[in-house]
């Protein structure tokens, strides 16, 4: 469970810290209006206790207050700036769903931190999966440039342009094979039916086309 272990270090530290902060303390639901002299953690804890009892105002103040904390945790986990807000939203939704698990005698920040860290790891993992899947597919990479990054988009557009030019210059049989099998993602039998060529010839042409394209792009940056 390597992913669990990465989360472990932070959460252990976090709850370890928070344990020292507030040992035992019961917060009645009515005390949502807390004096400013209290620590932020205790204030949030009181808000959550009130929210568990159904106090909407305390709940909204608490969630708004939590956004910055979640951002900090997400950044510490290594979430890219573009995706921090996704983690914030996912964490807020989780907080809403599991708010009955919060025990007001304990630190709110540690509770929130653990949830945020988990959602941050989920985000990193799902992006990791998506990236590794796309890297295997040159066409997908060209067709779906990273929308978050303008320079990356331009670069991949240029790359796609060069690739299209290179495909256009291929001999007709090879070009046909690349277009049908690669770009339009048709199956061998579909492509064979459409082009009137047998599937063996299509395969050979695709193979030659890819070889030619590789040779052409080899050495280019």
């Amino acid at each position: 469970m390597p992913q669990a272990l990465t989360a472990t270090a932070f959460m252990g530290l976090d709850s370890g810290l928070s344990r020292g902060m507030s040992p035992v303390r019961t917060v009645p639901a009515e005390s949502a209006a807390v004096s400013a002299s209290e620590s932020p953690d205790r204030r949030r804890s009181a808000w959550m206790a009130a929210a568990q009892a159904g106090d909407r105002r305390a709940y909204e103040k608490l969630l708004a207050d939590s956004v910055a904390l979640i951002r900090t945790v997400a950044r510490r986990q290594g979430v890219a700036p573009d995706h921090v807000d996704d983690v914030v939203q996912e964490t807020l939704i989780t907080v809403h769903r599991v708010r009955q698990t919060y025990d007001p005698t304990r630190s709110y920040d540690a509770w929130l931190g653990a949830i945020a860290a988990r959602r941050a790891i989920d985000s990193l993992r799902s992006r990791g999966r998506r990236d590794s899947r796309e890297l295997h597919d040159e066409f997908a990479l060209d067709n779906h440039p990273d929308r978050d990054d303008a320079s990356a988009a331009t670069e991949s557009e240029q790359r796609a342009q060069r690739l299209h030019e290179a495909i256009a210059e291929l001999p007709p049989g090879q070009r046909e094979a690349v277009e049908q099998l690669g770009l339009r993602e048709r199956s061998l039998s579909e492509a064979a039916e459409l082009t009137g060529r047998n599937s063996g010839a299509l395969k050979v042409n695709l193979h030659r086309a890819l070889k030619a394209l590789r040779e052409r792009f080899h050495g280019e940056p």
Partner: peptide, 9 residues
Amino acid sequence: LAVPGRRVA
């Protein structure tokens, strides 16, 4: 461990 924020220990 089913309560967020508890130590993994």
